[in-house]
Each structure stands twice: as C-alpha cells, then as structure tokens.
Amino acid sequence: MTTVGLLGAGGIAGAHIAGWLQLGVDVVVHSLRGAPELVARHGGRLATSLDDLLASCDVVDVCTPTYTHRAMVEAAAAAGCDVVCEKPLALTVEDTEAMIRACEEAGVTLYPAHVVRFFPEYTALHDAVAGGTLGTVAVQRYDRQGGLPVSPWFHDEKLSGGIVMDLMLHDIDFARWNGGPVASLRAVRSAPDPSGTVAAQVVLTHASGSVSSIGGIWSARPVDFRTRFEVAGTGGVLRHDSATNPATWTNGGAAAGADGYAPKVAALGESPYLTELREFLAALRGGPQPRVSAADGLEAVRLAEAAQRSLALDTVVTLEEAR
C-alpha cells in the first residue's frame, strides 16, 4: 500500500487529505500546528516528527507555506520519496530549479499541484482549445476574485510572493497551457491600501502573438469566491462565470466571504483536488504522465517572477530577459 506523508495542516492540506483518503492510500501527517485536528477531522495518522514521516512514506505531499517548499521538497527527495508540492513550487526560479535538480539527482518525481488545470470548467475549456474547437486562439481573459487570505504569511510578500505569485499563478499557468510560451508581459497592481484589498492585472503576449489578460483580486470587503474566463479564437469563443453558472444558488444563504477565499467544490461532483491527486498517484504507479509537470511549475514561477519584476520596474519584461 502506498503511504503518503502530508506536510502541513492548513487550508489546502484539508482538501488534499480528503482526496488521498478517498484514493485509499495510507496517510501520515506532520505539521508544526494543527496536525492532530486535521487527522481527527479527516482520518489518517500522525507522524511523530518530520524524520519519522520521511522514513515511512513513498510520496510526500508538501502543503506547507510557500517559503518552506524548497526545504521540504529537498528533504523529501533526499529521503527517496516522490513529491507532490502545492503551488507555487517556490518563490523564485532559482529555488524552483534547485528543487527540480534535487529530485532529478535523487531519482524521484516532482509534481506541482496546479489544481486549476483539474477544475472541470477549465478542463472543458482546455480540451476544446487542444481539440481545435476554437481554432487559433487570439485573446484569453481570466479573472479570479476572493476574500483576503486568512493566514498572516500570505500578506508578507517575502513569504508568499503576494497576489501575483500566490493567486494569479493559477491563471498564468492556465493561459500558458492554452496559449503557449510567453514572449513578454506587463503587470500592474493597485496601490497598497490599509484594508488589505489588492487588485492586479497581468497581460501576457505569447510567442504566437496571442494575448492574455489575467486579473486577480483579494478583497477586504467580504465576497464570494468567483472565477471567470473568456477565450476567443478563429473558431469561436468560450466563456464561463462561476457567479452566473452555479449548479446551486442559495438566496439568503451564508454571508458572503464567510469562506470566500477558496472555491466551493462540493457541487462539482468530484473535488478537483481528488481528480488531481488521482492523476498524480496513477502516474507514480507507472500510468500516463499527468497533465502538469515540474517543468510547467517552473515556467509558471518564471512568469510570476517576471510579473513581479514588471510591477517593481513598471516596464514590459521580455521572457528572454527573465530566462
């Protein structure tokens, strides 16, 4: 039986442990905080220490804060474990390349948990693009809006990378998946506000000439989590808005923003986190390559890092410069 060692017990760990347990694997958890509560809520068992966890598992699932990813992945690789790592893989290209190198040298596999690629509406869009339904893609638009992250480390750019690296990396990765390599980009962001509200926009010009506009919002005002996209090509246009396509809508339900930081997945039929982990597990057991690779994770970090540079310098950044 496969044993998965889950590192971290925050929000994303809850989604992952539920997925792993549904896949019937043995789960052992270690975290500086919250591990007993996580196991009590979902199941699995507790490791006594990081070393205990690394010694007893086949796969390590890194769900710790971003700034710890490199150390956790390198420890997992050194212990000979395959690795699933929450996005972003790391805060910098340098760290991400070091993680990939450590895994290669240890002969273990590294998968980045870019879960948006597994959300069914995004999968439907990508399949249509890949299958030629939209012809040549010319314009992609993505929006992702939610409440402020709860854990304080998200608000420290040095620890989380801020909204571009943490939130918008999803759509940056997805736009690159559909639109191909990026030639240049430019990013803008709202001025710092005491409330914590931040809105940013990243505009990609792909090597194909197609363009992508990616918006991200962390709102201090309580809001429901919402995503939308529109992609236009020579063959037509596809769009989706989670606010106007809800499978369930409750008028007078819970106050907006009560859990407005993350998408609600219960009404999707299967949690995209489960879909994602099943695909990773099958690949680790010799099945087909999953739809996202460590190289994709590296390119997403490279683009987000370039966007941070564009913000800092208020310039267009070409990806030849960033490489």
Partner: peptide, 18 residues
C-alpha cells in the same frame, strides 16, 4: 498595449488587443 490580428490574418489592422 499589446495586440494582434490572429482572428483576421488578412486584415490590414489589429483585430484584438489589451
């Protein structure tokens, strides 16, 4: 601004832009 004419490659002007 960034733009292209991928939707109408024969066009003499840009047909998409941000």
């Amino acid at each position: 601004a960034t733009a292209n004419k991928l939707l109408h490659p024969d066009s003499a002007v840009e047909t998409a832009g941000i």
